[in-house]
Nucleic acid binder design. Structure first.
Lengths: 357, 357
DNA sequence: TTGAAAGCGGTACCAA
DNA sequence: TTGGTACCGCTTTCAA
């Protein structure tokens, strides 16, 4: 016999619908009908087929099905390889929602958001039915490739301001910024500051906008501002700079919990100040770490579960009907009151729909 | 025309190898040869084919290829839906290693480790070439199903003591436990304690074994011990109990960073003790959070990158040759010296191969 | 080196 | 309600 390329050695033959058909005494087509929901099958036949299938441990081959239906029921989930727990939660929730709709998640991570072009070829050759982009900017090249292939895209926790052609779902960041401002102002703070994430992300920009709008509306002033790149180190560095200003800020709203934690660590350990007595700190996301005693971080909880199912819902909708108009949804977050920010009166807390923990 | 079931509306026709063949003036078979590495194609033909493919934006359909080759080049990555950043890093690294070998990662997460049976059907019907199980125990039912289907499994960061039939790769937990013990004893601690993870995980059991062995070898005593379930809350509760003992432990080794952090938070905030002056704390994993100023946690770094590529390597090896004998690899971790544990003399630090940060 | 043709394991149309 | 049959897009003999 010809020697085999070990790289190509085929797997042992699997049970197919033909085997089931033979055993159940029906045609292969009938077996197919019994497993795909469409087409009529008599109860008697279905019974025998199911039984035979169970005996043979038959499972329809999703790959073969995908080939003929042109629907792989695979959805790519694209994510830059950030390490923060928030994104793991997002990943799990997206998986849950996809699974509930009968889709599989093909994970694509990449060194940085800039490398999204590199993952698209894989995504295309595996004939995914849709793409969910989380924590990455979409390059125009990448989006063009998907459009060519007629693959819908939904952005989660992110949207592209310049290009309106993708659906997106994220937190209501403007509302969140306003809430943070209202909370801090009601607690009597005078010198507010903001630590932004990456400059060109809508998530950060909108949190900033809501925050600044509300502050200037209520107090007529502008908060101080630094950029923290959504990282712990960035948050630390930004806080270091902000706390050197005169007047020194007495409250900081951070565009993410991780930056807030970085800021707190600098404020307390490096500058020897107290939180919230000297400075109040508010974060965003309600990441796992925010509830740890060491931080006890007041924050605005992103509703990851809702975001995930809305994203999947929008995606399946577009996959099914190819609705041409992109939608945008903004899920309101809830202010979680913990100990890192001075508390305003109970009435304000209630008005903001905040919950104490 | 018959009305269409909107659920089944097919995607617009994609570019196939036939289109490329026509344009390049060759047969479809030749196009196939040009894209799969096997078979001869003249340079001239290859040139024209590649050109035509580029013009038409042709990408081979991996689904169709998988159908005929019986190799989907899909690998399922199975994970319980824990939220700790460590597992996100692991996920990214596994993806990286898989991608480097030309495999796609099919993400399967589940509510808890116990639900692994539920994900196997998906995994089977998508004809994955292999399964990597991270952060989950493998049920015997699940493993049987995979064996029936002849799908190799590799466990990462976990192994099954009772059943030797799976390959696994993890940290060298015994070595890690010994290092932690040696470090703490050399620093002059007398009353050591251990916070275990889940009772039936090898990861925790081995860390415990190494730790206990070394402690009793050097001091003739047994450390105190509590279980923390690998969670922040579990670590907190365990520390609360341990610190009530007489004599009160003056050093705690925790089977994970997250439990160590939970323990530290209780020790400092609740009991008003100082770390490391009153109690030294050592964790395991070198999770992202361990380096934060607030914790500055001395820990043993799991080498996630090496674990990932070894896991993928073992998996591809078994997929290619179906080597029957399962292998087990234990990757040594490195002790990262930070501020949460009293430091022994420089010589000990060097002898343990520890690095200061 | 190339092309024709037979599948891979299903789905879906059509006629019975 | 069922069976026959033509694909889905690719890989892989086999002959030329």
């Amino acid at each position: 016999m010809a020697q085999r390329n070990k790289d190509q050695e085929p797997r042992s033959k699997a049970v197919t619908s033909y085997d089931v058909a033979r055993r159940a005494g029906v045609s292969q087509a009938t077996v197919s009908r019994a497993f795909s929901r469409n087409g009529y099958v008599s109860d008697a036949a279905r019974q025998r087929i199911l039984e035979a299938a169970k005996e043979l441990r038959f499972r329809p081959n999703a790959i073969a099905r995908g080939l003929i239906t042109r629907r792989s029921r695979l959805v790519a989930v694209v994510m830059a390889d950030v390490q923060y727990s928030f994104y793991l939660t997002l990943l799990h929730e997206l998986h849950r929602s996809l699974h509930a709709e009968g889709y599989q998640a093909l994970l694509k991570s990449m060194p940085s958001s800039a490398d999204i072009d590199g993952v698209i070829p894989d995504v295309l050759s595996y004939q995914v039915d849709g793409v969910i982009v989380a924590s990455a900017r979409l390059s125009s090249r990448a989006s063009l490739m998907c459009r060519d292939a007629d693959i819908p895209i939904v952005l989660v926790n992110r949207y592209v301001a310049e290009d309106d052609s993708f659906s997106s779902v994220g937190s209501d960041n403007i509302d969140a910024g306003r809430k943070a401002a209202a909370f801090l102002l009601a607690a009597g703070h005078k010198h507010l500051a903001f630590i932004a994430g990456l400059a060109d992300t809508s998530t950060s920009a909108d949190r900033e906008r809501g925050f600044f709008d509300e502050v200037s509306r209520q107090s007529g002033r502008q908060p101080a501002r630094r950029t923290g790149d959504f990282t712990y180190e960035g948050g630390s560095a930004a806080a270091r700079e902000l706390m050197n200003l005169t007047p020194r800020p007495d409250a900081i709203f951070c565009a993410s919990d991780i930056m807030a934690i970085g800021a707190m660590d600098v404020i307390r350990s490096e500058l020897g100040l107290r939180v919230p007595e000297d400075v109040s700190v508010i974060g965003f996301n309600n990441a796992l770490e925010a509830s740890w005693t060491c931080f006890d971080l007041t924050t605005i909880a992103a509703d990851i579960e809702t975001m995930s199912w809305r994203a999947v819902d929008m995606l399946t909708y577009r996959m099914d009907s190819r609705a041409p108009r992109p939608q945008h949804e903004y899920i309101k977050g809830r202010l979680i009151v913990r100990g890192s920010a001075r508390r305003p009166d109970a009435e304000t807390i209630q008005r903001l729909g905040a919950v104490e923990e």
